[in-house]
Design a protein around this nucleic acid. Sequence first.
DNA 1: GATGAATGAGAGTTCATTCAT
DNA 2: TATGAATGAACTCTCATTCAT
Lengths: 188, 188, 188, 188
Amino acid sequence: MRRKDDLKQNSIKKAVVKVVLEEGMHGASISKIAKAAGVSPATVYIYYENKDVMLKAIYHEYAQEMFDTISAHLSNELTADIFIDVIVRQSYHYMVSHEDIHHFVEQYGSCPSLSQGCIAISGPDQLGDRINTYKEQGVLMNYDSSNIWAMLFLPVKGIIKKTCSSDITTDQRLDEMIRMIQRALIKE
Amino acid sequence: MRRKDDLKQNSIKKAVVKVVLEEGMHGASISKIAKAAGVSPATVYIYYENKDVMLKAIYHEYAQEMFDTISAHLSNELTADIFIDVIVRQSYHYMVSHEDIHHFVEQYGSCPSLSQGCIAISGPDQLGDRINTYKEQGVLMNYDSSNIWAMLFLPVKGIIKKTCSSDITTDQRLDEMIRMIQRALIKE
Amino acid sequence: MRRKDDLKQNSIKKAVVKVVLEEGMHGASISKIAKAAGVSPATVYIYYENKDVMLKAIYHEYAQEMFDTISAHLSNELTADIFIDVIVRQSYHYMVSHEDIHHFVEQYGSCPSLSQGCIAISGPDQLGDRINTYKEQGVLMNYDSSNIWAMLFLPVKGIIKKTCSSDITTDQRLDEMIRMIQRALIKE
Amino acid sequence: MRRKDDLKQNSIKKAVVKVVLEEGMHGASISKIAKAAGVSPATVYIYYENKDVMLKAIYHEYAQEMFDTISAHLSNELTADIFIDVIVRQSYHYMVSHEDIHHFVEQYGSCPSLSQGCIAISGPDQLGDRINTYKEQGVLMNYDSSNIWAMLFLPVKGIIKKTCSSDITTDQRLDEMIRMIQRALIKE
DNA sequence: GATGAATGAGAGTTCATTCAT
DNA sequence: TATGAATGAACTCTCATTCAT
């Protein structure tokens, strides 16, 4: 018999991300995905039980990958300044260099079906520990961790969205945004 | 266009946000919307050319309403501190008290079909002017306006999303978030 | 607007019976039925909520019609002899002259999905009363009503099924079968 | 053809009647059958050319087995009374103790695809001979054999189907039914 | 203006069957 | 022999939209 092909499943994953980027979560039908992946629609159901399961699985995988990629640049030796810089800069970098994946994760996360409960990716705990350490050391403001989290990951999304007019380059905007967040979070 | 006496069009609008909240943008079909509005599917096409046009129009209307409601609490006499407080607090307040509208606007805005180009709602100019005034007065940091915009409107969304664990109430989180943003934006 | 068309619904009913006769309950797909009825598959769903509901409704209607047609020839003045004769003969007559309807009702009734609980057609009560009267009068054996029922309606089905060899005509078989059942049920 | 040591083919047969009982002839797909049998779908095609052939073969086998089991209790020494008793009682007994097989045979036999032409099971001839002997001996009414056949095998099915109300137990119904049939067939 | 009927197109999914190992 | 992967065809059903009244 033919063995289950990792390449095939991978091409399905990539097709999902691609089609969602091009047509929106709304327009990502199984047949379009299958066509983009170069397989039969029925083949998709060999690798995933149904569409919902497929999207959820791919979301989890890519959300994890996204988080891992970003936190790969972190280490315990970083100052809080650099810590913030790395997170925000790497978030931004991932978003622009993996536009499709970011778009898919964002789209899926903003749908009502999923995203219920915790993000369910492993890693945030360590990052939360790191934040707590900075708070105990007195270098980070003693804010609620969820708020810090929001400050670290949400404003940077504003740089991605194309606004009508901005006087400076996006790179400059990123640098500035990092300073803004540092200013918000770090004790003077 | 917006005739207050036109009960039918209004019930369609309300039906749209209701159905989108309950079933997601994905499941908001014309027939479901029509049923929720108490009209025939064909009637929808008397008020809107097609589904895309309908969603876009309703999005614009509610996005505008959202912005207007928030900025209605602003005046030129406010200090920058209060200015930030009002924007963030009212944003939050609108989100929780108009869950359906917020949800619809958020969902639609994160779709690829719309939102291309500027937000195309009137009012931001005045708000931008106000920000510039604060910057000229030296009370607000001289950040790029788009970045300030992102800082004013994005982090607060993190409070809405239910996170697994947070030690404090959402009201406390809101107060703290406002202080964080003030810290980021206001000159010491 | 177009009014719901009784002719259209009727042609769907006839198409169901026709397709089930030709292709079996198994092969009676919505698209085949729609084609036979001269409508679009989607149109079927205007008249019936879904396939199961459609089959059940049509079954009930035709089962009722079948029973009514048979019992239309009954009256209170009949002797038990004639009563049996009429039931068996009319059953047989209906089966051969409405082959498609009989076939559909038979097929559907032998499926596990339906036929749970009583037949749920109105009329058997009166027939049951009639049987009880005959029993009280002492002209009919005092058998359990369900057994009498089985004797009245089941053996005649054996005449319909084409057996390899039979020395006599089906009409002769019918007459004989009636005599057999009379012999079983009527007191000497 | 029927190798007793071939566990696989046997588990397929059992799976067929099991799945048909649980899901109906309609829902008995090759993949479900294969799963129930603990084999691969492809394996089914080693033992049977295709689905139709498989069903037909299994039908024939089980119909034969059913008939053989019933007639195993017959012998030439039986009086006509007992002969009828054995046939009806054993038919009933087989139906209730082999619910799945009876259900499958019944379902398949009532489909239009098969059952065309003679029943094609061996054995009826002997049974027919036995009936003829009884007729020649003058103990059995001189009815057409097909009619006798119908009387022996059809009414008992009415006991299986759960009717809404019956005043007596099924065992009592069976005894009574046997008496009814004897009354119909045996010369006084 | 307003309606419910009508539909072609397409959705997700399962099917019987074949293929390559 | 036996397998699980693979698929074209077909399934039930819903969609956005139009039509006739």
